[in-house]
Design a protein around this nucleic acid. Structure first.
Lengths: 209, 209
DNA sequence: TGAAAAATCACCCGCGCGGGTGATTTTTTT
DNA sequence: AAAAAAATCACCCGCGCGGGTGATTTTTCA
């Protein structure tokens, strides 16, 4: 007798939810036992169903996948969660891996890769695609922005100049410049426009506001 | 006796393809007669099947949805094509509408909206969500970048300074500055970093390289 | 409690960028 | 062939930004 892998899917887009569920349920040894359309609902449904594997979208409207992951793992340290993302260069990767994600799958996957990821994670292994691992090592040595730096970067993206930033954060312009130097160093750039580009490409800031 | 709406789906992501097909085929009066994973394949399959309505993803690896749309409409001026996009603020909207797109659907839609769009377009109507129409009027008065401006904007995003740009395009630095002034005017910004932000938000440039 | 990381601020320099104004040539469109 | 749009270039000005260097305080974490 075979063991059926019970899966919880957390994904806010209906189209992707149906697509993934259809793929999973077509497997003889897998079944989607519950679907959540938000991070909060995902946490609730996890408590109810205690699935073997959870597929969690990284970017969702209200509660982000990273937050939901963290909350679930705090409550259930053995939870096996695979993160789904649209981009391979997402800055959140490092974060979710630290919080205990067991796998990371880019959404443009083929059927086989998704199934494979679920199966491996269910067996207690990790699943990190080579492409993702490579970008991880490139981007995140110890180059994670501090909270202040992150905030300032967001203001730069919003078009603020140094004086604007200083006023908004109630700090001196010199401090702002100091932070910006550190940001440039970490991002590997030397002017604001480039910083904005890198911010978008790494997912440090988001296109949808 | 009812008429069945015959639909061609052009979408490179497997997950979305399955999701959309499942939704469509659940309707009693609709059926997906063919699925293409690329723009080129989409054109071929259109010739073969001559569907009533085509659902076309805007952003795809090789041939973009906009290009495929243009080619199909040139060959079949009465083709009814609905564009699928992930973002509502995409700069390509204006382009595809000029090329004769009949509808525009954001991919985070609910079931009903997708079905509704297909049905309306099949009846000869247009389907443009209010949100999209509003952004259209905000962004694209006559503020479409010229080819030169677009190229320069891309170089700015890539981190080039004025001298770099001048060298790469074999024009003088003064000309570059002149173009940049026009770009800033059209985008409603006054410095490079803001221009980069707007470029990403409007989809003038893309995160994936 | 002690070490490490983060946040705060100061001063100097020089040049690149953005703003204003005006003009000619080339290309596209009608 | 005429009109409109796009591309090309010049000159000036002034300040904001980025680069370098160095230091103190606060917070976080082990």
């Amino acid at each position: 007798m075979k063991t059926i892998i019970r899966i919880l899917l957390v994904e806010d887009h209906l189209i992707a939810r149906i697509g993934i569920t259809t793929i999973i349920n077509a497997q003889p040894d897998m079944v989607v036992v519950a679907e959540a359309a938000s991070g909060m609902q995902g946490i609730e449904l996890f408590r109810h169903h205690q699935p073997d594997v959870t597929l969690m979208d990284l970017r969702m409207g209200a509660t982000s996948g990273a937050d939901a992951l963290q909350l679930i793992r705090r409550e259930f340290p053995n939870a096996r969660i695979i993160i789904l993302s649209s981009h391979s260069g997402d800055a959140e990767i490092a974060r979710v891996l630290r919080f205990g994600a067991c796998g990371y799958v880019i959404k443009d996957v083929l059927e086989d890769e998704l199934i494979d990821a679920v199966r491996r994670v269910h067996q207690g292994k990790k699943y990190i695609p080579a492409k993702v691992a490579q970008i991880l090592s490139e981007y995140f040595g110890d180059e994670i922005l501090t909270p202040s730096e992150q905030k300032i970067l967001e203001l730069i993206v919003a078009g603020a100049n140094n004086k604007n930033i200083a006023n908004k954060l109630f700090i001196s312009e010199n401090t702002v410049k100091s932070h910006i130097k550190n940001i440039f160093g970490k991002l590997g750039v030397n002017e604001r426009a480039q910083a904005v580009t890198v911010a978008f490409k790494r997912g440090l800031v988001s296109v949808d506001e």
